[in-house]
Design a protein around this nucleic acid. Structure first.
Lengths: 338, 338
DNA sequence: CCCCTCGTTGGTAACGTTACCAACCGTTAG
DNA sequence: CTAACGGTTGGTAACGTTACCAACGAGGGG
């Protein structure tokens, strides 16, 4: 019966023995080789190559003051390409700072988030980057985190005053809605997330603000704010278009709702159903939006940049170059007309 | 001048002192509490809560035989939603086995891959899951990895005989091409990756096989095999459609090429340019394919499942339940007609 | 010629944890 | 009443690494 791990990892001691030096000389050589004779360095490196030695980073970070080199990243939904790009942005900046990321998916579950965060802390991460879920946030208080720096992305958490990177949700939704109003629409439906979702609330606020500013009444019967996935969005769009007085345009607060709405609109066109072919404004970009059967205005933003900014904020905090007050960055969005 | 880390993490010793027990009792309690008096367990847990103690997983995995609980995952391009889903699949299975994933992005760079893998080994990962780049693979030999189990996904590496999860690239491409031939097309263009990319080669093979089997000549002038991104794919499609004898259908070997081709086709339709409106077969699914201006047949597959299968293979290896010979799984693809 | 300095090397201890063994207790059987 | 037992608890050592200090030797200046 063989063990699943054929051979143990060689240790610094074995390298030292093979090279005929002390472990300290090996350690020093691997740390850059200051004050180590070149010929000894060569012997050490030869022994390292021969044994296939890798320094044990876990043992290393055990020593006081040594960082683990790990950044914990928890995301709500990795299957969403938006967050994949976000993770990529974080990874890029982390790699540039010689760090790795440990990645966890919360699936919008606060319990899972708590569990992930506590595991991250247990692994001595140097910092945390989180797209927080909407649940209870007691487990994110600085003292509960052992004062490991935390950066929030995309969403804020009530009662938690930490570095945060957001999008200009309100402004983007406002400008998008205004562009529909400018085009003469007055009956504008809204598809979005429930108000407990941070971005859902903010984007609705931008929509509402534009409508009331222009004196256009907000009609609750063409507002649907509870769709988390494409199918639910499709159904909501269907109900909206079956309304006796259907909207001539729809504001969609995120990618999932946009895709759902377009599915439904496409179905009606294919099936030759009567009724309006509403114009669309979509918060979140998607590919081939220019090929859609109705004009789609896109409120675009850069997930990768969001990740990069979050990581940059974190490293500023880690290196002590950040100002002491928590920082909030709100990234601009761009509007692309069809 | 304050340090960036306000307070040190409490240790098991401090918990023990506060609870009035020995560190061993704390350790035992945290390990499940076998043979520890309930009242002591309560006192320990109270102390843990009061101090905000988290067990140091790095120190823990230092003890011999203790797994680190980490799985190293290296992906070629996290920005590609396909790989985001792949990572999600791996993460799901890893989480179910009480493991975390450390994620790195190689960007198709063999040097970066080598660096990532060596870091993973240094962090004592229990296993590795890799979408390999096309470069040299000496650093992936089992002995170089300290015999940490390795699973390859999506692509194989020449000369490396390890557990692998692939797609049925050849079969999918073959069936997709046949469906075009069955529809009466004989002039079928090909858009894909260069042949040094494993999947690029296999998908071309499926295309070629279908064509020659039906006695349809393969015309090199409508075959473009060097596009890695959407813009390059668009340009290739443009050249193909400007060909004096343009194809009436196009086989696209991956998502990036499909999007590029559709951009170009859409542009021609919008601008009212003459010429064929080619039917499309796309290896890789994408959203709203049913709304495209030309019929798109999709060869669909499940990235998340790919990740799940890779992780499952890895854990079978880790738990010693895998057969000793390396396993290869080839996942089926489905064809969805428009 | 000796002492001091500096570059180089090695020994020791500590980081936080848990396996192992020893010690202790109360209980029960003989 | 004693011995044995099982449940419970604590001490020690070790995991792999590096900071710190001590020691050594060569070279140079007094």
């Amino acid at each position: 019966m063989s063990t699943s791990r054929g051979a143990r990892q060689p240790t610094i001691k074995e390298v030292a023995t093979l090279a005929g030096v002390s472990p300290m000389t090996v350690s020093r050589t691997l740390a850059g080789g200051v004050n180590v004779r070149p010929d000894l360095q060569e012997r050490v490196m030869a022994a390292v190559r021969e044994l296939g030695y890798y320094r044990n980073e876990n043992a290393r970070s055990l020593r006081p003051g040594q960082p683990s080199g790990l950044i914990g990243v928890a995301i709500t939904n990795l299957a969403n390409p938006y967050y994949g790009n976000f993770a990529l942005g974080v990874e890029e900046v982390a790699a540039a700072h010689g760090r790795r990321i440990i990645l966890g998916n919360t699936g919008e579950d606060a319990g899972r988030e708590r569990q992930l965060v506590s595991d991250f802390i247990g692994r001595q991460v140097d910092g945390l980057i989180l797209v927080p879920t909407s649940g209870d946030a007691a487990h994110l208080q600085p003292e509960r985190l052992g004062h490991v720096p935390l950066v929030l992305a995309s969403r804020r958490v009530p009662g938690l005053d930490v570095d945060t990177v957001l999008l200009d949700d309100v402004g983007g939704a406002y400008r998008g809605t205004v562009s529909l109003l400018d085009a003469g629409h007055t009956r504008i439906g809204f598809l979005g997330n429930r108000s407990s979702v941070f971005t859902g609330e903010r984007r609705y606020r931008g929509y509402e603000q534009a409508m009331t500013e222009r004196g256009v009444p907000v009609d609750r019967s063409i507002i649907a704010r509870d769709q988390q996935d494409v199918d639910a969005a499709s159904r909501a769009a269907r109900a909206m278009l079956d309304h006796p007085e259907p909207p001539t345009a729809i504001f969609s607060a995120n990618n999932r709702n946009t895709i759902g709405a377009l599915r439904e609109i496409g179905r009606r066109i294919r099936d030759g159903l009567p009724g309006p072919r509403p114009a669309l404004v979509s918060f979140d970009d998607f590919e081939l939006s220019e090929l859609m059967p109705v004009p789609v205005t896109v409120i675009d933003h850069d997930a990768r940049l969001l990740g990069r900014e979050a990581a940059t904020l974190l490293f500023a905090r880690l290196e002590g170059t950040a100002e002491s007050r928590p920082n909030t960055i709100e990234l601009p969005v761009t509007i692309e007309h069809p």
